[in-house]
Design a protein around this nucleic acid. Structure first.
Length: 580
RNA sequence: GGGCGUGUGGCCUAGCGGAUCAGGGCGAGAGGUUCCUAACCUCUAGACCGCGGGUUCGAAUCCCGCCACGCCCGCCA
């Protein structure tokens, strides 16, 4: 109901301005401070005070008198508070919110008939996913969920870099070394077993005598050459390595869970001729130059050329990525890419080159995040430094389990949690805490990974919000036999009204967060709804309320709040426990 | 050297032009459970919003300069 309310406010303010011949380009609509009970406010009086020849407070009074709220069902009245116009909700605003939030998909917006491909993670298939990269699947999955809630038709893609030198090195190393000469894997899964070859190969290239290295380099070169030439046998050899490693990485990401509709391989755009096509069109473009034995593309506002073809005729990563993105444009209306800040320059070049090739750059958005570093420095798969995402999840789940068991002893609720429940809660809380900690912060902020900070289950973490959901479920279980009633009039107390008003905001928060591709705003909202629910929980007993009408109405409010919390958590990719 | 990003109480973080308290949380101190789960709640202490200018009726928010930190500036991906 908040979206029609906002439209009403915009319409009302614009009408009042038009009636006086004032511009309507900036209506000054904003959200009021916590202690004001209006849904929206406008600071327009500041801007039009001069035109009206009065001070802002008088201008506000004057405008308020002009505004007719009658045509707007959800707007009860408008009131001038100092220089501000405050728009207060009508009874039907609360009634319709209570009803709308009974739907299990409350908060999801109507379908837009716009398809969007969200590409995220796309970590090179060289070994285990470490926490330095963990921000990507967590933010990426939340962005995809958020866009889905906002009504877009979303596909999730993982772009597989299976054509680069490091993959050639990996393939060579896998064929060159025997498992018996490698250390035991850190974990019994494909990518942990395979990365040993990759690390061994890199050590060899660094430490072996020059002749041996030269021979190895020739073999690696042959693999690269074979891929470039479309040699089927080379492709098979490389694919065996890539697919095996990727299988393990997929299992790791599945723990978050982050799932993909498609794994798109880079070699696909070499094999189908689209990279050659891009090269030909780039060459023909007036910005193309041949300098220092390589074809380069120049830009007007980027002073770094893009080398798109080597002297030997081989393509580069970004060249193939251009073909990849034109393929996305052929198949989707919009494309969103989640990538680390180290790829920002390349992303700018990509977008500019796409534009010069005749594509509409507005169709491509990037969500940039800063890397997670360790106190002692950067993480690296090749060097084997860093904390693996698997280890982080294991540790978090272990700590969550200890917490569950410690709380079991002085638990008030008598609902007989069994061993399976303990496992379930430990996993939901453990994984949820990791995701929430990462997704709730602005992605551009740098993070230094510290165990204790990442795994804090106190307030402002996933379990704080999850607990609210479990409490709702607990109340519903206790209220067995009471039918929830859509009776907003019976919910007249402040805690009830404030909770309902916060429930009402979810669709607006989803819309705004999706427009800017900022899932952390959903996390901020989950804290607000949880705070409001806790206030309601403290003040307003449901099952033990004094009369049946209040019980039934409050129960409907609990259901509404539960859907709101569950769906906000779903966008973040955090599970909502039935009990904990 | 150039480009991009970040800088909010001891620590983490929201806000990114508007409402005489700059919200939360952690940590510190004091309380709360005969009542739907205390992973909760209430109260106290703690901030010249990196520094200096400017624009504006109004700046944590915009502009300029400086400082600190991160990332990038490869015919790697």
């Amino acid at each position: 109901m908040i979206r029609p309310f906002r439209e009403s406010v915009e319409d009302a303010v614009a009408s009042a301005l038009r009636a006086r011949g004032l511009p309507t380009d900036d209506l000054g609509i904003e959200e009021p401070p916590d202690d004001v009970a209006s849904v929206f406010a406008s600071s327009i009086a500041f801007r039009v005070a001069d035109d009206l020849g009065t001070a802002p407070p008088q201008a506000a009074v004057s405008l308020a008198a002009d505004i007719d709220t009658e045509p707007h069902e959800y707007v009860e009245r408008v009131e001038a508070t100092g220089p501000y116009l405050n728009f207060f909700p009508s009874e039907s605003y609360f009634a319709d919110t209570l009803e709308a939030a009974q739907a299990a998909d409350y908060g999801s917006l109507p379908a837009r008939d716009v398809s969007v491909v969200v590409e995220h993670t796309s970590a090179n298939p060289t070994g285990p996913v470490h926490v330095g990269r963990a921000r990507n699947p967590i933010i990426g999955d939340a962005v995809a969920n958020l866009l889905e809630y906002a009504g877009y038709d979303v596909d999730r893609h993982y772009y597989v870099n299976d054509a680069g030198r490091q993959i050639a090195v990996f393939t060579w190393a896998y064929e060159r070394f025997e498992e018996s000469e490698l250390p035991d894997p850190a974990r019994d899964r494909e990518e942990y077993r395979m990365v040993r070859y990759y690390r061994r190969g890199n050590e060899f290239l660094q430490d072996a005598d020059p002749e041996a290295v030269e021979a190895a380099e020739a073999e690696i070169e042959a693999i690269l050459r074979g891929l470039e030439d479309g040699d089927e046998e080379t492709y098979e050899r490389v694919s065996e390595v890539v697919d095996t490693v990727l299988g393990g990485m997929k299992a790791c990401l599945g723990r978050l869970p982050a799932a993909f509709d498609e794994f798109v391989k880079e070699t696909r755009f070499m094999r189908d001729g689209s990279t050659d096509d891009v090269v030909a069109r780039l060459k023909a473009h007036e910005n193309a130059v041949y300098e220092n034995d390589a074809w380069q593309f120049t830009f007007e506002d980027i002073d770094k050329n893009l080398v798109f073809l080597r002297a030997d005729g081989t393509s580069l990563y970004t060249t193939r990525d251009l073909a990849h993105h034109e393929w996305k444009f052929d198949n989707y209306d919009r494309a969103v890419t989640v990538l680390g800040e180290d790829h920002k320059l390349q992303a700018r070049q990509l977008k500019a080159a796409l534009s010069e090739l005749g594509n509409d750059p507005e169709r491509l958005d990037t969500v940039v995040y800063s890397y997670v570093n360790l106190p002692e420095g950067k993480m690296s798969t090749r060097r084997g430094t860093g904390v693996q995402l698997d280890d982080l999840l294991d540790e978090s789940i272990d700590r969550a389990r200890e917490e569950v068991q410690a709380r079991l002893e002085d638990r008030l609720r008598d609902d007989d949690l069994d061993g399976a429940d303990v496992d379930r809660i430990a996993r939901q809380v453990g994984v949820g805490a990791v995701r929430y900690d990462i997704v709730s912060k602005q992605p551009t902020k740098a993070i230094t990974f510290e165990w204790d900070r990442a795994l804090d289950f106190e307030a402002q973490s996933a379990p704080y919000v999850q607990y609210v959901h479990a409490r709702c479920r607990g109340i519903e279980a206790e209220a067995d036999g009471i039918d929830p009633a859509l009776d907003a009039a019976a919910l007249s107390g402040d805690p009830e009204r404030e909770l309902l008003a916060t429930v009402a905001r979810l669709p607006g928060v989803v819309e705004a967060a999706a427009a800017d591709r900022q899932p952390h705003r959903i996390a901020t909202y989950t804290r607000e709804i949880a705070d409001r629910f806790n206030g309601f929980y403290r003040e307003c007993p449901v099952v033990t309320a004094s009369d049946d009408r209040t019980k039934a109405a409050r129960l409907a409010l609990v259901v509404a709040a539960r859907h709101t919390v569950a769906n906000a958590l779903e966008i973040l990719g955090v599970e909502a426990p039935e009990s904990m």
